[in-house]
């Protein structure tokens, strides 16, 4: 207390108090406010009670898929996928759309009126596969694009494997497929031209995303797997246009995805602080707040002391 008493009349004390109060309220609000993730956790908890993982690696359990559908999808999209006031008709969306929406965590949505950010998926790979199988069997019935098999999808998760070796094996296999797909594209220029002409004006040159009209935004695409990128092009989620296999051929899609992933993997040659590749706004901000501020602080320092005989 003595420490505070001695300093409470300091000229900066008021600012410190205001900053502390702001920090307390800001952090406090962030802790208390309902977030999409929290709402999702409740959905997940509800879903998980009924969904036991099926046995066998490749066995598709349509009944589990139906279970997930009825618990977590049907309330908005309808039992037959015909949609409702809250959600669109998805009978023609295709397995690729289901895989994209669910594996990126955008569905199930906690707020049908808002654009959903990417988050942890509510189910593991196997459960999602079961859901897709159920969807294609009973809801989509072959309409719309199917899940593209060639581009690698989600990375294996340790929790889905019983022991470390099985996980490592699956991971190695995945990495091999991933590298084969990315390296299979050799024409950097084609990928770059396609990306910069078709994608960059929303997702930005670096894939960091950007604002769109009407309160929507183009998401950051760095976390997306090659398969999710491919599915997004095939199905055009949200505001995104559809790039069919005719518009951009599978080979060109591979070039494009390879360009995105290679650019993303680039190290930052210009220093350890990459400013998140946000660009000139961040650079100008740093120039003023760090650069000029430091220099002016030095100017204050060297002119503050003046000796009598100077």
């Amino acid at each position: 207390m003595k420490w505070i008493t001695a300093r409470r009349r300091h000229p900066l004390a008021g600012y410190v108090v205001v900053l502390l109060a702001l920090a307390v309220f800001g952090v406090g609000y962030a802790m208390v406010a309902p977030s999409a993730d929290r709402a999702e956790a409740q959905v997940m908890a509800a879903a998980q009670t009924g969904a036991e993982p099926a046995d066998g690696e490749n066995a598709v359990d349509i009944s589990q898929g139906r279970d997930i559908w009825e618990r977590s999808c049907a309330s908005c999209h309808g039992l037959n996928g015909g949609g409702s006031d809250n959600a669109p008709d998805i009978t023609g969306a295709g397995g690729a759309a289901v895989d994209f929406q669910v594996s990126t965590g955008r569905m199930p949505s906690s707020n049908p009126d808002a654009q959903m950010p990417r988050k942890e998926p509510a189910w593991n790979r196997e459960e999602i596969d079961n859901l897709i199988a159920f969807y294609e069997e009973e809801i989509g019935q072959g309409a719309g694009p199917a899940v593209p098999e060639e581009p690698p999808g989600d990375e294996p998760v340790r929790a889905d494997y019983e022991d470390e070796d099985a996980y490592k094996e699956a991971k190695a296999e995945y990495d091999k497929a991933y590298d084969a797909y990315i390296d299979g594209a050799s024409d950097t220029e084609a990928g770059m031209q396609l990306y910069l002409a078709n994608c960059a004006h929303c997702h930005s040159w670096s894939g960091a995303g950007g604002g769109l009209t009407g309160g929507h935004w183009a998401p950051e695409i760095g976390d997306a797997t090659p398969r999710q990128l491919y599915e997004a092009m095939l199905t055009g989620p949200g505001q995104m246009p559809v790039f069919t296999e005719g518009t951009i051929t599978p080979e060109d899609k591979q070039e494009l995805i390879s360009y995105v992933k290679t650019l993303q993997a680039e190290p930052n040659a210009g220093g350890i602080f990459d400013l998140n590749r946000v660009g000139q706004v961040a650079e100008g901000f740093i120039a003023w707040t760090v650069g000029l501020t430091l220099i002016i602080a030095c100017a204050i320092w060297i002119t503050a002391k003046q000796r009598a005989h100077d």
């Binding site: 770059m192 031209q193 910069l196 002409a197 960059a200 004006h201 929303c202 997702h203 930005s204 040159w205 670096s206 960091a208 995303g209 950007g210 604002g211 183009a218 650019l263 680039e266 930052n268 040659a269 210009g270 220093g271 350890i272 602080f273 990459d274 400013l275 590749r277 946000v278 660009g279 000139q280 706004v281 650079e283 100008g284 901000f285 740093i286 120039a287 003023w288 760090v290």
Partner: peptide, 27 residues
């Protein structure tokens, strides 16, 4: 030395068809 600025090698060359969001002029 420590803060990357204008990483032109990441941007790629200009072509008249290319356009991107998230890029500004200098401040």
């Amino acid at each position: 030395a420590f803060v990357q600025i204008n990483p032109i090698h990441l941007f790629g060359p200009f072509t008249p068809t290319a356009i991107t969001s998230g890029l500004q002029p200098d401040w």
